[in-house]
């Protein structure tokens, strides 16, 4: 049962798997629940085969609602938002939490329009404010500044969460509540998902725990293999500065910065990146930053914890070898 004081968490699936960012949203929901007493309801849309739900037991919600039908297989924002909105109207939750992924941001914004609910997107801190309200902190100007906002009033609020910020230690083994599975066919709508194109095995730069980024100091697209090697040893992914993308060396989805993606990994290694303000804005939320640059005066060193003055083409392979040694032994 849900009541007026519940928190809905949207569990994002990719194919037949629950995305790890969804667990972060659940973790955040449970933390809020602890201080406010509000119950957490996880809401999941999936194809006719229900995915393995066991990852959710690390942060077990109080209830679990699953919409399962072949037509939910590919995420259709129009269908999901309209069904989600019906649930909101029936059950009047206080808060909806979503991962700030592409789909999550879009769904949050659509729901804010449908429910006329305030939205705080890409938040990096969320807490209860008094009995009924919430306080959030979110980057603006892609991280050049932060805004702290209050979400007040007894109605519905919507918050999307920056990936990698709300990870938690999996709690003591809790029992996952039995899923309430709805297999009704979704109504036909005008949007049709024709094709989902996935690059196999690539971790998205916004979701990676380690990002190895290259700038013009990499001297050419052929040298990005060095960064791929380092990233793969560290279980991370490769990012790029804007000039690299504008030169066509890397795809735009790699671009970190104010007109690219904002990232908050545990470790960010900037290789041959000078550190334009736009780039620094997009990565300064990283927990640990390493910079490698030939120019000892490069601006990137001003945000780095560790700096190496040198040629990235020489240093990176050495790092790859060292990390390999350390991580394998």
């Amino acid at each position: 049962m849900t009541d007026k004081s519940s928190i809905f968490v949207w569990i994002e699936c990719q194919g037949e798997q629950i995305k790890p960012v969804s667990l972060e949203a659940l973790h955040c929901g449970l933390q809020l629940s602890e201080s406010s007493g509000q119950k957490v309801c996880a809401v999941l849309f999936c194809g006719s085969k229900v995915p393995d739900l066991s990852p959710l037991s690390d942060f077990a919600p109080h209830s679990l609602k699953v919409f399962s039908h072949g037509r939910w297989q590919d995420h259709n924002s129009q269908a999901v938002s309209s069904t989600f909105f019906k649930m909101i109207q029936e059950q009047s939750p206080r808060l909806i939490l979503l991962p700030a992924s592409n789909h999550g941001k879009e769904l949050g914004a659509l729901l804010s329009g449908l429910a006329q609910a305030p939205l705080a997107s890409d938040c990096i801190e969320v807490e209860c404010l008094g009995e009924n309200d919430f306080k959030v902190k979110r980057p603006i100007y892609s991280g050049k500044a932060y805004a702290s906002l209050a979400l007040e009033g007894a109605g519905l609020h919507i918050i999307t969460l920056r990936p990698n910020v709300f990870r938690g230690e999996s709690g003591s083994a809790t029992v996952l509540p039995e899923a309430d599975i709805n297999t009704t066919e979704p109504e036909s709508l005008s949007l049709i998902v024709r094709e989902v194109i996935k690059e196999a095995g690539k971790i998205d730069v916004t979701e990676a725990r380690v990002v190895v980024s290259g700038g013009l100091g990499m001297q050419g697209p052929e040298n990005f293999g060095l960064l791929e090697d380092l990233a793969s040893v560290l279980g991370g992914t490769v990012g790029a500065s804007r000039p690299v993308v504008d030169n066509g060396w890397r795809d735009y989805s790699n671009q970190v910065g104010q007109t690219g993606r904002s990232v908050s990994p545990d470790l960010y290694i900037a290789c041959g990146i000078s550190g334009a303000v736009q780039h620094i804005a997009g990565m300064s939320g990283s927990k640990c930053i390493v910079a490698i640059n030939k120019d000892p005066n490069a601006a990137i060193f001003s945000v780095a914890q560790y700096g190496i003055v040198g040629d990235a083409l020489e240093i990176v392979p050495l790092l790859t070898a060292e990390f390999k040694k350390i991580l394998n032994g």
Binding site: D74, H75, S101, N102, H103, S190, L191, I192, V193, R194, E195, V196, I197, K198, E199, K202, I203, D204, T206, E207, S253
Partner: peptide, 10 residues
């Protein structure tokens, strides 16, 4: 989308 793209008709 993260790590890919979608083609959507409307």
């Amino acid at each position: 989308i993260e790590g890919g793209a979608e083609r959507i008709e409307s």
